[in-house]
């Protein structure tokens, strides 16, 4: 997994609530058995005017010029600014895969849907929760200044604006640790294999019907 430590990049405003994972990556692209290559279909139905097909070459497709990520000033965006309940709906991890593949490193919103939030951390993508007021302030600043960039400092848990304003954010210790070091959860959990076996032995005594039944 990619590490996330310090990142500075162009921020783009996705000004709507409840952006769902169907919107982030429509279902026809979930047929891939790979983990990469989803970036060209990120926000496919918002980004292009035609209907996207799996394995289709996307250069040359008609672009929706009104869509924020298609605008010249937001080329190279790596930080998304969004409204409440970002990432709701389906559990598809293809959503963070698509964001990451497109070049997004962090999403800032007042709230996230849980499964999406969780999936981000497995993919080196940092979701940041800030208050409604702060998000509103950032929306205004982004709109006012072309080339507006934010810096995200995970170690210090700060979002830094171009004016130097430092905005603190919260994050679980465990998630922060994994992201800073690019750690693989499975390896960490297997360090506790003895605890898992001990629990499993106890479980076999309590609920023997759960063992050996499915075959």
């Amino acid at each position: 997994m990619n590490k996330f430590t310090l990142h500075t990049g162009i921020a783009a405003p996705m000004d709507r609530a409840n952006i769902d994972t169907d919107m982030i990556i429509p279902k026809q692209f979930l047929k891939s058995i790979k983990r990469s290559g989803f970036g060209k279909n990120l926000f496919d139905e918002l980004r292009y005017l035609d209907e996207g097909l799996p394995d289709q070459e996307c250069t040359g497709r008609p672009l929706n010029e009104d869509f924020v990520l298609n605008k010249a000033r937001y080329q190279g965006t790596s930080i998304l600014l969004a409204r409440e309940n970002f990432g709701c709906g389906s559990s598809r991890e293809h959503a963070p895969w698509a964001l990451e593949d497109f070049g997004i490193r962090s999403v800032i919103a007042p709230s996230f849907a849980e499964i999406f939030y969780n999936n981000c951390f497995k993919n080196g993508l940092l979701p940041i929760v800030l208050s409604d007021e702060t998000v509103e302030q950032l929306f205004k600043e982004v709109a006012a200044t072309e080339g507006y960039q934010l810096t995200v400092d995970l170690e210090r848990q700060l979002v830094v604006t171009p004016a130097g304003e430092e905005i603190a954010f919260e994050i679980d210790e465990f998630r922060k640790h994994c992201l800073l070091n690019g750690l693989d959860d499975i390896g960490l959990t297997l360090q506790h294999a003895d605890d898992i076996r001990a629990y499993e032995d106890k479980r076999k005594q309590q609920a023997p019907w759960l063992f050996g039944a499915i075959k």
């Binding site: 983990r35 559990s91 963070p96 499964i115 969780n118 999936n119 497995k122 499975i186 297997l190 898992i196």
Partner: peptide, 14 residues
């Protein structure tokens, strides 16, 4: 529900 990384995590660690 879980994402695919967690599907793998549960397969590998229960």
């Amino acid at each position: 529900g879980v994402g695919t990384s967690e599907v793998e995590h549960v397969l590998a660690t229960q």
